[in-house]
Amino acid sequence: MQKYLYLFRGGDARMAEMSPEEVQAHMDEWKTWMQGLAEKGQLIDGLPLKAEGKQVGSGGKVVTDGPFAEGAEIVGGYLMVNASSLEEATEISKGCPILDAEDGHIEVREIVDM
């Protein structure tokens, strides 16, 4: 088994248009999907990220505010999963409800096993 990282981008614009009922329905879809991953032993960990942040560079001498990207480019959350290959990890990610949003996007990366 290998570990993979999903980086989620976008999907928020759609959320702003939703009614409370639709927001809840969307949340329930996520929960169902995550629960499915957990039951199959694929889910390791994951959390959403706030939009605010800092950029640190130049040996720590330069610190700027925020990711400063457009909404759809900011990483809004991450998830770590178990999968046997990059292909399988990609396949699993296709069930994610973020893809229902037009600007929803997932980056799938293999975590290097030391």
Partner: peptide, 15 residues
């Protein structure tokens, strides 16, 4: 209130 629901949905999707 709407904003608080978005925030909740985001966090409660994971936890």
């Amino acid at each position: 209130v709407q904003e608080s629901l978005y925030k909740a949905a985001k966090i409660w999707s994971y936890q």
